[in-house]
Amino acid sequence: MALLEVDNLAVDIPLSDGVLHAVSGVSFSLERGETLAIVGESGSGKSMTSLALMNLLPKRAVRRADRLLFDGIDLVTAPEARMRALRGNRMAMIFQEPMTSLNPSYTIGNQLGEALRCHRPVAPAAARDRAVQLLEKVGIPAAARRLNQYPHQLSGGLRQRVMIAMALMCGPDLIIADEPTTALDVTIQAQILHLLADLKKEFGMAMILISHDLGVVARVADKVAVMYAGRVVESAGAQSLFRSPRHPYTRGLLNCIPVPGRTAPGSPLGAIPGQLPNLIGPQHGCAFRERCAFAAPECAGDIPLVVTEPGHLARCVRIDALEAAA
């Protein structure tokens, strides 16, 4: 049985001028030890998807799903107390902003220890030992001394390592990393990614990596889901997706990445013209058609997910035209 099964997940946010369809029809499954990358630009609904899994959505947001199973537990009907017992314990989250995601008023040791002690009846000293052990594991030098420091005394890279250690305190089965490297320097980004990949292997966790950066994703993901305007437009194994992208949007994203050897110095990088459509109100047809070079009249109709090869799905009716052009 898959560790996580998501079927037809939707998140609606009622606003004064209509309902914002932040996420619609998102389905995927995740096995233990697997890394799924959810890719998309800002506002594509990837963070909302991860918050929906944790049931940490903003108050006004409404979550719906045909199925939301975590290790056999139905998350749709789970009461808040049950969710609370899972959060941070069996499913943990690493956030995008290490600079602001730690409480400025408490020491690192306090915040790390709390993560363990709210789920396990352990003594403060044991929680402290666990914290030191994990801080060392995530590569923080002089770990024991760090416990008495406050977040503002640490750099962004160190804080993100602390966040990762905090997510690991209870030894979760699933770790959701929401743009864990976006706020960091490029050199630190690579370190954090390697760390996450190593830790995932060592602890046998499943991981959902949320990113807008396909370059980041290519290095660590087993599976990739590309999101656009709240929907998954293409999902496949990482190799298959990078080798033969089937959706014009995925192609556009891949064209944005400079390739060593192929992209000449000074030549313009790819860009996708236009911007995300307005997601307020009823949505019809392919959301990408306004920006798509292959758009045709049928793109305004219903767009089913097409299986292009086993395990590779694309939400596009113009795949043939795309293939012919390539």
Binding site: A85, G88, S101, A115, C118
Partner: peptide
């Protein structure tokens, strides 16, 4: 949000 994600 972090505190809530911890399950507090």
């Amino acid at each position: 949000r972090t505190a809530r994600a911890k399950g507090l």
